[in-house]
Each structure stands twice: as structure tokens, then as C-alpha cells.
């Protein structure tokens, strides 16, 4: 009926509950303490974690925990129309919500008086870059060996042509009715990011969250595999002895 979904098939050939193709990799940058790379649809995002480390300037240090800083940034060539390199209001807001999505999992009190810096660079953007960024950032934090009570994984759901769908592409995000990014700590089931952009009934809202959580569950499997590949590749099997 609509122009974005035809007989249950979306413009890029996906069903309504299907994720775009994805790829996750851990340990991609030499200098960073932890790093990860994600491709999700056309998104290509690289994340580096530095820390825990001394805080500069010193006065922003906290006596009983570490400070988490986060910067989400898009390279000028990452978008359809060139983006100026200076951070936009959108990037600043996204940096904040990403930080707040990740912070609940970090055992901050283990590292008093220090800082952890999380840098996300979007090399190519598509719909759902903040979610893809969060999924990769959690891997970078784990790669840095920072104590965490869980990973964090994120995925969006939304309403397109009157139907609730998983993992919106760029065009579905722009031309659809609603977009709702969700991040969750997968083992704990605690939601750490929720944004909504568009009108949904209560029914659709619930359906959307259920869809997003299902997407997160699949991406969490991919996160686990990426970490296993990086750290236990030479292991003969998972259970030892």
C-alpha cells in the first residue's frame, strides 16, 4: 500500500522484523586502550576508548568515581551533503544520550579520580547511527578492560507506512512516521536509552519496544562473537578443562 513497504517487503528488500546486514570488530586501533568498529547497513562507525586515565583539567575529577566523557562526531564526508567538521547541536545531544546509555554499565566507583573518554567517529552515516555507535562503544569499553556489570546494545524500531518495523534505514527514518532508538543492558534487561520521534499509539509503542529488544538480542549475539573472536580465537573450545 505504501511507498516504503510493499507486501511486507521494505525498499531494501528486508522484512519488517529484519536487521540490516552488520559487521562488528574489536581491537581496530593501535593507540586506543580499547576500540571497535561497526557496520550496520551503510553506517560505518569507529569507536575508541581512552582510560581510565588522569583527568585534565584536574578540578573536574570526582573523589569517589570516574568521570565519563563521550564525543559522537561525524566526518565531513559521512553524509550526503558535506557536514562542517565543527560539532553541531545534534552531535552534542547525541554525545550526551550515548554517554548516558553507557554509563549505567560502567562500575565507575572502581576508578576514583579518573576519566574515561569514549570517542565515536561516524565515517559513513545511515539511519540509526547512534544505536550502532552504542553497540560498538560497549565493545570498545570491554576491550579496554573497564569493569562493567553488562554490555549495552542498541537498536531502533519505528513506524513506516503504518507498520511497526525494526532497524530503520535512512529513508525510512526520514519519511516514516516514527523512529524510536532503544538501548538495553542485555543480561539485566534494563533500558538505558529511549528516544521517540513521531506519533505512536500505546499499542504501537509497546510493539516497538518489543521489536527493538529483539533486534538488540540478535546484536548482542554478534557482540559476544566479536569479543570471542578477538580474545579467544586460539582457544580450542569454549568450556576449558
Amino acid at each position: 500500500m505504501g511507498k516504503l513497504i510493499n507486501n511486507g517487503i521494505r525498499l531494501d528488500g528486508r522484512r519488517v522484523d529484519e536487521l540490516r546486514p552488520y559487521k562488528l570488530e574489536v581491537g581496530v586501533l593501535k593507540n586506543a586502550d580499547g576500540s571497535a568498529y561497526i557496520e550496520l547497513g551503510k553506517n560505518k562507525i569507529i569507536v575508541a576508548v581512552y582510560g581510565p586515565k588522569e583527568v585534565h583539567p584536574k578540578h573536574i575529577a570526582l573523589p569517589d568515581r570516574c568521570v565519563i566523557r563521550c564525543r559522537y562526531h561525524m566526518s565531513p564526508f559521512s553524509t550526503d551533503v558535506r557536514k562542517t567538521p565543527a560539532p553541531s547541536r545534534r552531535e552534542i545531544e547525541i554525545s550526551k544520550v550515548i554517554r548516558e546509555a553507557l554509563e549505567p554499565t560502567i562500575l565507575v566507583e572502581e576508578y576514583p579520580r579518573t576519566a574515561i573518554d569514549i570517542f565515536l567517529e561516524v565515517l559513513q552515516s545511515d539511519g540509526g547511527s547512534r544505536c550502532a555507535g552504542i553497540t560498538a562503544a560497549a565493545l570498545a569499553l570491554a576491550d579496554a578492560g573497564i569493569s562493567m556489570c553488562d554490555l549495552v546494545v542498541a537498536c531502533a524500531a519505528g513506524k513506516v507506512d503504518g507498520t511497526m518495523v525494526l532497524d530503520l534505514s535512512d529513508i525510512e527514518d526520514k519519511e516514516g512516521e516514527a523512529d524510536m532508538p532503544v538501548a538495553v543492558m542485555p543480561n539485566l534487561g534494563i533500558i538505558t536509552l529511549l528516544q521517540l520521534d513521531g506519533i505512536l499509539t500505546h499499542e504501537e509503542f509497546k510493539q516497538g519496544i518489543d521489536l527493538a529488544l529483539e533486534g538488540c538480542r540478535r546484536l548482542h549475539e554478534a557482540q559476544r562473537k566479536a569479543l570471542m573472536d578477538r580474545y579467544f580465537k586460539t582457544a580450542p573450545n569454549q568450556e576449558v578443562e
Partner: peptide, 8 residues
């Protein structure tokens, strides 16, 4: 741009 992720 020398991105902050490129070096400590």
C-alpha cells in the same frame, strides 16, 4: 582533522 580517537 587529527581526531581525538587517534592518539592519547
Amino acid at each position: 582533522e587529527i581526531l581525538p580517537l587517534a592518539s592519547p
